[in-house]
């Protein structure tokens, strides 16, 4: 594979490594179709052309871009609150478009079927009405006023209840979830999922969590997130096509898919092709 020529994809920031991982030897990975090398000092260069990529560091991650990102990385206010537990969950590879992974993260309707006994339980399958919008001032997609009946909403909880959730897509390959914290109802737990698009239909993902939780062990918090993510992995890998269709008539959404509809519309407006079915047509 070679580097995509999609300017929208090239001008984004992508998480490509955890800063606590680098060893003495350079790491090789792939971004947007091209092999890149991450040096021990955090420098990133293309293995095809030798050129250096722009980089920045935030939240314990190394970000890189082939192009000129028009803006700095977005902000996560909760990451600046010093009393939170910071839980980076580790990278997981998926054979799917990163955009499919984002869309699955936004979806609540699958909770009772895929995360049975954790994020949902039959017969509580209804997705109550919520609001989704493209926020023009910040150029992000948000879904607000989301509620869902969950049987175990966080590692601290054992009983079931309605959770209150807010979803945020601050960049095409990043998705966030804010959850009213069960043990401190005036605060929000923040969970972010960063995607590294390696190829059109191959990506790596790393969830980061900033939690208000004083009782769970680090291993318990990791376990909760990793189990959920691996349950999602098999679903996302089996969606067809592997790329995300942006044509409105390609798939038939329901009311519960409002956030996905907004996300796809936003990506289409941006003209993003990498990881979409439009990218496949361009390559053919």
């Amino acid at each position: 594979m070679t580097r995509t020529d999609d300017p929208v994809a090239l001008n984004e920031w992508y998480a490509v490594a955890s800063l606590d991982e680098p060893g003495a030897a350079p790491q090789t990975t792939r971004l947007l179709g091209e092999d890149i090398e991450i040096g021990p000092g955090g420098g990133v260069r293309s293995l095809a052309t030798g050129e250096a990529l722009r980089t920045c560091e935030k939240w314990g991650l190394l970000f890189a871009s082939f192009g000129r990102p028009p803006r700095a990385l977005f902000d996560i206010a909760e990451a600046r609150e010093t009393d939170r537990r910071f839980v980076p969950c580790g990278w997981i590879t998926l054979r799917a478009s990163g955009l499919r992974v984002v869309e699955n993260f936004l979806d609540m309707a699958h909770f009772p079927f895929i995360h049975t006994g954790i994020l949902g339980t039959e017969p509580h399958t209804e997705v109550p009405q919520y609001a989704s919008e493209i926020r023009r001032d910040v150029d992000e997609v948000w879904a607000t006023n989301c509620t869902f009946f969950q049987s175990q909403i966080a590692a601290t909880e054992t009983g079931g209840d309605f959770v209150h959730l807010t979803y945020r897509v601050p960049a095409p390959f990043v998705v966030m979830l804010y959850r009213v914290c069960p043990s401190a109802p005036d605060r929000l737990d923040a969970i972010a999922l960063f995607l590294q698009p390696m190829e059109e239909t191959l990506c790596r993902a790393i969830p980061l969590m900033w939690l208000v939780d004083t009782s769970s062990t680090h291993a318990e918090l990791l376990r909760f997130e990793q189990v959920i993510f691996m349950q999602d992995r098999i679903v996302v890998e089996n969606q067809r096509p592997l790329r995300l269709p942006l044509e409105p008539r390609h798939e038939i959404p329901t009311r519960a898919d409002g956030s996905s509809v907004a996300y796809r519309r936003w990506l289409k407006e941006k003209g993003l092709r990498f990881g979409t079915t439009a990218g496949a047509e361009a390559a053919a």
Partner: peptide
């Protein structure tokens, strides 16, 4: 007992 194998290498 959960052991943090990845990423913690516990």
């Amino acid at each position: 007992r959960a052991v943090d194998v990845y990423p913690g290498a516990e």
